[in-house]
Simulated scan of single mutants.
Amino acid sequence: MPSYQTPGVYVEEVPLTPSISGVGTSTGGFVGVSDGAKMPVAPDGTPYPLAAAGEPVQVTSFEQFKRHFGDFDAGNQVLAHSVYGFFNNGGSVCWVARVGDLDDLAQVNGVLTKFAAIDEIAIVAAPGALDDAVQTALIDHCADLNLQDRFAILDGQRVTTVTKAAIMGGLTSTSDYAAIYFPYVKVRDPATGKDILIPPSGLMAGIYARVDTLRGVHKAPANEVVRGALGLAYQTSKAEQGVVNPDGINVIRTLNGAIRVWGARTLGASDNARIRYINVRRLMNFLRESIDEGTQFAVFEPNSDPLWQQITRSVTAFLTRVWRDGALFGTQPEQAFYVKCDASTNPPEIREAGQVIIEIGVAPVTPAEFVVFRIAQFSQIPTN
């Protein structure tokens, strides 16, 4: 402590409790097919080189995508439209890797292995991949115990029969680290001047990013307009959606003159042991990753009460901000979350093992999926 010799006012700087910042939630990771048939021309008059197969490339605009993977073209149709739809619907950054065949599990797994090393990826999609083994690989990638910081968006099968078996095909997963969307979406293809059908996953990744930016990851990415959509491959009725919604199949529908996302469930919606809603799972991913990265200061610190208090203050301050943003339920912070890091969670045997145990509980806000108005008829309006 400083020694003061003369009267006066002294200002001291004290170390602050390390703060936890929220991680990004809207960076996409796309796997798709591109043969580089229509590459734009560089300033020197030669075509830009096609990106190497299996190598992820960071892309921040569709113009940049074209320089690496080519313009709208038959050999690039699905991937180009999906990435364009991502940016058009609100996405800002994504990583793209090309493969020769989306049904080749080895090629897709090779890309996913490289995606695992890119920490900022939070949304993963392989637009047009309908093989159940490939879709399962996307899910397993996101649910991997070494990651659990990303979410898979899958495309439903191209069918006109609205049943779980038809839309899911051979996929049997009930993971809450993925969501599936139906049907395909109609867009205008600049290369041919005609309308074509594309898988919804790329557009949905953009909608996830848009909602994250405007409202937050805790807001369900539903009741949102699909920008660029001119129609749908199939017009699902309310009754038909009622058949598949409980199984976690999210339907895109034409409602009130607009094409809207009309579902917000994970594939685990029918499993009571899983998280039902997309926004709740993605919020939990966000909290886990943010707290993980924000508490790295604790590594190798003396494992005692001062450290436990510092961790508690940091995590509490972070969760209080999350609660104020509307992501947690409760009128007071005490109703929304709790943080416990003390001698009860860190007994001698835990400390001897070099571990610090922090117990955290949160109450996420779930979406108002069913809004019910109860209307009664009175012969006379009550006065009180």
Rank of each mutant, 00 (worst) to 15 (best):
S82D: 04
Q77N: 11
D149I: 09
F87L: 07
A116W: 00
I121W: 03
I118D: 00
T163G: 12
L79G: 08
D140Q: 12
A117V: 01
D101E: 05
D132Y: 08
G100S: 10
V93K: 10
V83R: 04
Q135H: 02
G85S: 00
I123C: 06
V93E: 14
N89K: 01
G156T: 13
G100H: 02
S92H: 13
Q107N: 01
G100P: 01
A143C: 10
G128P: 15
K114E: 03
A116G: 03
D119V: 03
A106L: 04
V108S: 09
F86Q: 00
A97M: 02
S92E: 15
V159W: 08
D132F: 11
I121K: 01
A133K: 14
Q148V: 05
A137P: 11
V78P: 06
F151S: 10
A152K: 08
W95H: 12
F151D: 01
H141A: 04
V162I: 10
F86K: 00
L145W: 11
V83I: 08
L154T: 13
D131F: 10
G75A: 07
N88Y: 08
N76A: 05
D119H: 05
G90N: 11
K164D: 14
F87Q: 09
A165H: 06
L138W: 05
Y84N: 14
A74C: 07
D155P: 00
T160A: 13
V78M: 11
A80S: 09
A80F: 05
C142F: 03
T163K: 07
N89R: 06
G90I: 13
R150P: 09
H81W: 00
T160V: 06
V162S: 12
A129V: 00
G91K: 04
D103H: 07
I167C: 09
T163S: 15
V134R: 01
G128T: 14
L105I: 04
D119A: 06
A126V: 07
D140R: 07
G156L: 07
D132M: 03
F115R: 02
L138T: 07
G90Q: 10
L154W: 08
T136Q: 15
D119C: 02
V159L: 11
G75Q: 09
K114S: 00
T163N: 12
G85N: 03
Q77T: 12
G100K: 06
L130N: 13
Q148T: 15
H141V: 01
R150C: 14
D131E: 15
D131N: 15
D104R: 05
Q107L: 02
Y84E: 15
A137Q: 06
D104K: 04
V111Q: 03
D132G: 04
T113Y: 02
L145G: 10
D101P: 03
T160E: 15
D101A: 08
I153N: 08
A143D: 15
T113A: 05
A80P: 03
A116Y: 01
A74Q: 11
D144M: 05
E120Q: 14
F115H: 02
A166P: 12
L105F: 03
D103W: 07
N109I: 00
G100A: 03
F115I: 05
R150T: 14
F87M: 11
R158W: 10
F86H: 04
I121Y: 05
K164M: 00
A152N: 14
A165N: 14
N89G: 05
A133D: 15
A143W: 09
A143Y: 10
K114H: 01
D144I: 00
N146L: 11
V162C: 06
D104H: 09
P127L: 08
T113Q: 02
L102T: 04
